[in-house]
Design a protein around this nucleic acid. Structure first.
Lengths: 255, 255
DNA sequence: CAGTGGTCTAGACCACCGC
DNA sequence: CGGTGGTCTAGACCACTGG
């Protein structure tokens, strides 16, 4: 497999020939990736059958299948035997809980209730603008959010969103927001969260944070710094989540 | 892809036919997996070329390649264009540091020095015997180990090893042990650590643990509970590692 | 049942590696 | 240069899904 195949160049310029040194299936994948990102097939819908796609692209079936396999490995597509090839829906949103085990009367996978404590339009810091790919001094939407299980607060979040894209969220009534933000991003702002990176570290709660979480000041906490990306690879959310360190639990595989 | 293909059945009974419902390449992979586990090709050595293997198995090249792809995905094989298909060496061993950022005068990837604080042959607890696949009341080898960077202790470990297999370590002089255990397991006991699972949580150090790590009693710590497996999927090490929670850092990908 | 993806074949040719 | 894995083809047939 050639290296170029793995670089998900945002909206690769689709010439009618693979770039020299690039495999044909890598080039096919780039083309399909671009068409998905442009919305030709929206999340949840099916692509044309592989036989048709192969004919349309003037390529053997096996070659097209290699291209699809790349996109499946990227998490962009999902194939279901006997049904079709589907564009994957974005991330669910409850994924923050995979780092914690809050016992919810036996139900470990319940969705926490969400409450927006604060919302404001602010100037992006240099780091925020850089991460979000915005010009220095651009405006962003920031949120403070508390998530609770059984009425007990468990996660405190600070969220930064780039502003032309998420303008619809600056106006709507936060009382009626969903408990899961990512499906709401999709519905209200037409933004699909496709991939994220979580950086974990440890610290102590400030008095204010501790108050929100109903813990004591300087209580140990885990900090999850998330960077989320859309289908084109653009960063579309910065999120910092704080939770009780003693509720933390995570399993990692080695090789 | 059928489900059965993904179950790495330990030393699958190689009949001369794929089980009904099992794909041919899944069956080929099982056979190769067994031959690797039995030591027909040792870590680091090359398998016969795919063309030869395919002829030997009486199968088309593409089918054999699918089988090899499975084993590559499992981490058992590594293919190098123009060179061959190689059995992967076991895990290195420095992988505990991926959870921490201990600043070592700029050098972030240095190998910590290892010192064995205690070694003894003990009766396995019920949980240990169960995890290691030993009969209740079996003997195990336990180690207490301190790892240091620049003379500063940073990680405290408790290690449990099943005993017939690791008997060679019960006798040798711990003064001369390597800083990395896994390569030593390989060299001295002929045990390859192929896969591991790390479970992270937070706690507070006991006074004794804190003393070892030159921290204060009740200092926050990360606890990494590792379960390590050999090529056949047998559990061959239980390890608990403690480190300063404030040095914790880990990055996880979502999808 | 028709339509989808999954498996398998038998071959040709290309790209990389080390001598 | 010879030997390796990587790409690509053009087909046949199987297995799963849903109406």
């Amino acid at each position: 497999m050639l290296n170029q195949d793995l670089i998900p160049s945002p909206l690769a310029a689709s010439s009618d020939q693979p770039a020299p040194g690039q495999s044909r299936y890598g080039w096919l994948a780039s083309g399909l990736r671009a068409r998905i990102a442009l919305g030709e097939w929206t999340p949840g819908t099916a692509l044309p059958p592989e036989a048709l796609l192969a004919r349309e692209q003037g390529v053997a079936l096996g070659t097209l299948r290699q291209a699809l396999a790349l996109l499946v490995a990227e998490g962009l597509l999902e194939r279901r035997h006997g049904r079709g090839t589907f564009v994957r829906a974005g991330l669910g949103g409850a994924s923050m809980l995979r780092f914690f085990r809050f016992r919810h009367d036996g139900d470990l996978q319940a969705t926490p209730k969400s409450r927006i404590l604060a919302r404001s339009v602010a100037l992006a810091s240099e780091a925020e603008a850089d991460a979000l790919g915005l010009p220095p001094g651009a405006s962003i939407l920031t949120l403070e959010r508390l998530r609770s299980l059984d009425g007990r607060p468990c996660l405190l979040e600070h969220i930064a969103l780039p502003l032309p894209a998420f303008a619809a969220l600056a106006a709507s009534d936060t009382q009626h927001w969903d408990d899961l933000l990512y499906p709401m991003y999709q519905r209200v702002c037409n933004v699909t969260v496709h991939r994220a990176q979580d950086q974990l570290s440890f610290g102590l709660l400030t008095a204010e944070q501790a108050g929100r979480l109903e813990l004591e000041a300087a209580h140990p906490c885990v900090q999850v710094q998330r960077t989320a990306f859309d289908l084109t690879g653009r960063c579309i959310e910065l999120r910092t989540t704080l939770g009780d360190a003693f509720a933390f639990q995570y399993t990692a595989q080695v090789r």
